[in-house]
Amino acid sequence: MGLTFRDETFRDDFTYANSPENIRRFPFPFIEDQYRYSVNIEPHTPGPKGSPFEFPFDIDEHYVSEMRDRALVLEADPLRCQALPHMMTAQWDMLELIMTSLARDYPEHFTLNRDGSQWHWINRPLGIDQKFTFLDAGTLPFEPMEYIGRQVQGDFSIQDQRDNQLWMDAGIITSQADWSLDFDVGMNFFEWHGPVPLAHEAGVFERALKFLLNLQIGKPVRRLNWTMTINPRLDTSPENYHKWGTDRTTVTPENAGKKVHLRVEMQGLFRLPRSNAILFSIRGYLMSLEQIVTVPKWGRRLPRVLRSLPQELVDYKGLTRYRETAIAYLSKYDDGAPTSPGGGPD
C-alpha cells in the first residue's frame, strides 16, 4: 500500500493539515489525565501495523512537503546542518541505517541495491536515483548525513561517545522546538540539557546518560516528548524567533482550534555500529486542537493535562501566553466522562 503525499506548506499560508486517517495514527503522548514527568523510555520495537511505531523511521503523508520545507531552511541557513570532522564514520552509519530501513519498510517508495561498496539508491517520492560508493563521500552531492537527512522526516543529531559522556558532534536540525544545533554542537549531554527545568534535580539526566552509554547495537529505544506550536510551523528555531515568537500573541478564543497545535516528538536512539556513536532521531508530528478533538478521548484528556502542568514546564515549553485560551477552547469538548488508560484513541 503506497502513501499519498499531500502538497502543503509549513509557512506563509500554512496549508498543512492531517487527513482523517492520519489523525487516528497521531502519537498522542498523554497516557493519563494527570501530567507526570518521566523519562518514559521503551524499546523501539515494531509497533502495531499502520502506527507511527511500526518501523524505525516513520514516513507519512507529509513526507514530500516536509522535505521541501527542510530544503528551504537549509538554503537560508546552512548552519542547521553541521558535523565535526571526526563524525564522518558516524555519518555513514546513519546513512546505512536509514537507507536499509526505508528500503525494507517502504519498498514501493525506496530501493537500495548494494554490490560491495557500490550502492544504488532510488527514492521515488522525491525523484532521486543515485549511484555512489559507500564510505567515499566524494561520490555523493552532500556529506552522508545531509544527503540522507534531506530524504527522511525528522531532525537528527549524532552523539559521539567518549570519556563516559555523549557529545553532540553532528546534526541536521531544521524543525526544532526552539533549540539550536549551531549553539549546542560540541556540547555534552548535561550541557545541552541545561535549560530543562525540574529534571536535573530529580537526577533524571544522570540515569538517562548511564542508560544510553550502554545502548546496544540493534536494540534502539524511543520516548515521546511534546510541546505546543502556534501555526503548523516546522522551523521554530531560535535563529528565526523573530518570525514566529510573536505568533504566540495572536491566539484568540475564536482561532485557538485552528492555530494552536500539539507538537509531539517521537525520539529514537540508535547505537551506530561502526562509530560507536548514538543517532538521535526527533520525528515531529503536528496536529491542530480542532483536529485533536475529533477523537473524543483526546478532547477530554488534553484540557485536563494542560491544567495539571507545573508552572516551570508551562514557561519552559513557551505555553504561558496561550495556555488558558487553549484550555478554554478544549474544555468545550470535555464532558467530564472518564478516559481509558493509554494514549491511543478508543
Binding site: 571526526h86 559521539d160 561517545q161 567518549r162 570519556d163 550502554n214 546496544q216 547495537i217 540493534g218 536494540k219 555500529p273 560507536n276
Partner: peptide
C-alpha cells in the same frame, strides 16, 4: 551477544 564497546579509541 551483540558487540559492545567499553574501550573505544578516542576519536579526537
Amino acid at each position: 551477544g551483540q558487540p559492545l564497546n567499553l574501550f573505544p579509541p578516542a576519536k579526537l
